[in-house]
Simulated scan of single mutants.
Amino acid sequence: MVSTCPNQTALDVELIASSKEAIERSRELLIETRPLLNPYSAEHCTVNSVSITEVCGEWHVLVQEDGKESARTFVSEQYALNYAEGQRLRLHLDKVTRI
């Protein structure tokens, strides 16, 4: 490969050529690889969970539902626990995770 830019060294040209070859090999491998999941199904993306954490004296409840995340902040641990437990019951989950 011959350089078209006056500032490129022979090493630059070599690196660009080897990078292009690696990209092309990767592209071919990706095309040949069979998907593990159905790309048209969102079932694998929805993980519902409820977690609670304490940061600097505030309690945060994180709720993940159908791929969306929401957070609520409480001053009282008991209020946060009550809210988290209510969300756990609503989502039919087994537990609230402390993080």
Score class of each variant (00 low, 15 high):
60 H>K: 13
98 R>Q: 07
52 I>Y: 01
21 E>Y: 07
23 I>D: 13
11 L>F: 05
53 T>N: 08
60 H>M: 06
30 L>Y: 09
80 A>K: 10
48 N>Q: 06
14 E>D: 04
84 A>L: 06
4 T>H: 00
54 E>C: 09
9 T>P: 01
63 V>I: 15
24 E>K: 08
18 S>C: 04
41 S>D: 15
21 E>D: 08
29 L>I: 04
19 S>L: 09
47 V>I: 11
18 S>D: 02
90 R>Q: 12
48 N>W: 04
25 R>D: 11
77 E>P: 00
82 N>E: 12
30 L>M: 13
35 P>H: 06
11 L>G: 01
99 I>E: 15
39 P>E: 14
60 H>A: 03
27 R>N: 09
88 R>C: 11
85 E>T: 13
15 L>V: 04
20 K>M: 03
63 V>L: 08
31 I>F: 07
54 E>Q: 13
42 A>P: 04
5 C>R: 02
46 T>E: 14
65 E>W: 12
63 V>A: 10
8 Q>W: 09
72 R>L: 11
98 R>H: 14
32 E>I: 05
27 R>M: 06
56 C>M: 10
94 D>H: 05
87 Q>A: 06
75 V>F: 11
40 Y>L: 07
99 I>W: 03
19 S>W: 09
93 L>R: 02
38 N>I: 06
6 P>D: 05
69 E>L: 10
65 E>F: 08
82 N>M: 03
72 R>Q: 12
77 E>M: 09
68 K>H: 14
90 R>I: 03
84 A>R: 00
37 L>R: 10
5 C>T: 01
49 S>F: 12
49 S>R: 12
79 Y>V: 05
62 L>T: 15
57 G>Q: 07
81 L>T: 12
42 A>L: 13
27 R>H: 07
93 L>A: 04
92 H>R: 09
21 E>V: 09
35 P>W: 01
60 H>C: 02
83 Y>R: 00
93 L>K: 05
18 S>K: 02
45 C>E: 15
84 A>W: 07
56 C>K: 12
88 R>Q: 09
87 Q>S: 08
32 E>R: 14
86 G>N: 11
4 T>P: 00
52 I>W: 01
10 A>D: 07
19 S>R: 08
29 L>A: 07
25 R>F: 10
15 L>N: 01
41 S>P: 06
26 S>L: 14
63 V>F: 04
43 E>S: 14
91 L>T: 06
35 P>E: 07
96 V>M: 06
24 E>R: 08
9 T>C: 02
81 L>M: 12
36 L>E: 13
74 F>P: 08
58 E>C: 09
